[in-house]
Each structure stands twice: as C-alpha cells, then as structure tokens.
Computed example of a mutant assay.
Amino acid sequence: MTARIYRPSKTATQSGRAKSKRWVLEFPPEFAPQIDSLMGWTGTQDMRRQVRLWFGTQEEAVAYAEKNGIVFLLEEPKPATRKIQSYSDNFKPTRLGQWTH
C-alpha cells in the first residue's frame, strides 16, 4: 500500500495557517466503507485509514517512511499566488469591471 506524504493547505473557513506548515503521512483507504444494517452507521475494517502522522519537515517524513519500509508518494505543495490589492483599488476609474452595489 502506498502512503501519501503532503503538506495540507490552509482551511477555507479560517484565515490562519496553523496546520499548513507541517507535513502529513497518511494511507489511502484499503477497503470500502460498510453500512451497518441495524443502525445505519458507516464503518470499516481498515485500521490504517485512521493513522495520520505529522512531521515538522519533509525530510523527517521521508526518512520515517524509508526507515519503516513504507512505499510513499511525495506531493510537493503548490506555491500560493497572491494578488496584492488595496481597498481603494475597487473605486479606481481604470477599473475593468462594472461597479455594482
């Protein structure tokens, strides 16, 4: 089973970058989830799916996977593209789009 090493992106609902600086090693699901016929709860027999290991750097995560013989797929983070714009730019006469309220 191939593990995935990646750095998670920041959440869309928060402006902070709390968990986006660490690296994660996690396993993909091995079995499909099963629905309990009595209660309707979803369960699984896959215990590896619950394992999520956090590392401070990419090198630590790769070293751990190699030391323990875990086959892994390394996903590099994509650089964030930011467009710096001030609030007053919304009211410029050279604005491309229509101004609506």
Rank of each mutant, 00 (worst) to 15 (best):
T2M: 05
T2F: 04
R4K: 15
R4F: 08
R7W: 01
S9K: 14
K10V: 00
K10F: 03
A12I: 02
T13W: 09
Q14R: 13
Q14H: 10
S15A: 12
R17Y: 05
A18R: 14
K19L: 03
S20N: 06
K21W: 07
R22F: 02
V24W: 05
L25V: 08
E26V: 05
E26K: 08
P28C: 06
F31R: 14
P33H: 10
Q34H: 06
S37V: 09
S37I: 12
M39S: 14
M39L: 14
T42N: 13
G43S: 06
T44Y: 02
Q45L: 07
Q45W: 03
D46N: 02
R49G: 03
Q50H: 09
Q50S: 13
Q50F: 03
R52T: 12
L53T: 01
W54I: 09
W54N: 08
W54G: 01
F55C: 03
G56V: 10
G56R: 07
T57M: 03
E59Y: 03
A61L: 03
V62P: 03
A63P: 04
A63K: 01
A65K: 09
E66N: 13
G69K: 02
I70W: 02
V71T: 15
V71D: 15
L73Q: 15
L74I: 07
E75T: 12
E75W: 04
E76I: 05
P77M: 02
P79M: 02
A80M: 08
K83V: 07
S88A: 12
S88V: 06
N90Y: 09
F91C: 00
K92G: 08
P93R: 11
T94G: 09
R95M: 13
R95N: 10
G97E: 13
G97A: 14
